[in-house]
Amino acid sequence: MLILFVRVIVLYLLVFFVLRLTGKRQLSELQPFDLVVTLLIADLASEPASNTGVPLIYGIVPILALFLLQQFISFLSLKSEGVRKLVCGQSVVLVSRGVVQEIALRGSRYTLSDLMEQLRSKDVFELADVEYAILETNGELSVLLKGPQQTPTYQALHIPSPEARPPFMLVQDGEIHHEALSQAGYDETWLHKQLKKGGAACIDDVFFAFLGSDGILHIQRKHETGGEAVYIHTEKKGTEKEK
């Protein structure tokens, strides 16, 4: 039993590193080729993991061979447009200038119902609203709405846009995320000051403190200390005003 346990650990580590090195995309974002390789790797690992009569090498060699092939083809795909088209395929325009491309639809084995389903998943319920619809190589449908149906931008409305900066999780479960804090341009003194304003006596009382991209610091105390949420408007470094 201990042997089975250790075998699983070895194969787990191998599969983990191989999958990490082949890319950390989500399953839904994988190209069909990547998906097949991922499934193959998982399947190859299962037999030596559960059968102690099979040497681990019988799982390791095919997994490493697949990894090398995958890396080689990925490398070629990056270098050559032709290989990329061969491996990943090409995106197909299903709706062009508001006209559904029947031949492209048929060529992609897509029915009109499939197209409508994909459009609905993009919150588009009227085919007449679509200017362009492109079936991407990973099976996703990209949709460009007709001009009047598009969401206006701040620029188009001549409204000053909010400052574009990423949100940061500064505290989680009473632990300060120092890297995020420094990326946000603040220090611990500033954070403790804000937390005190948010009603937290010490860092251990804080469930989370989240600095939004709009500059609002959302502090929530732990359930034992009230579990209340407080929103603090922060401005430039070191200066802030409470909402």
Binding site: L64, F67, Q71, F75, K79
Partner: peptide, 17 residues
């Protein structure tokens, strides 16, 4: 295009194989 880690992993895998 091809990171150092990937290259090192490929070389190690190749050597082992």
């Amino acid at each position: 295009a091809f990171t150092r880690i990937n290259l090192a992993a490929c070389l190690a895998a190749l050597a082992l194989l």
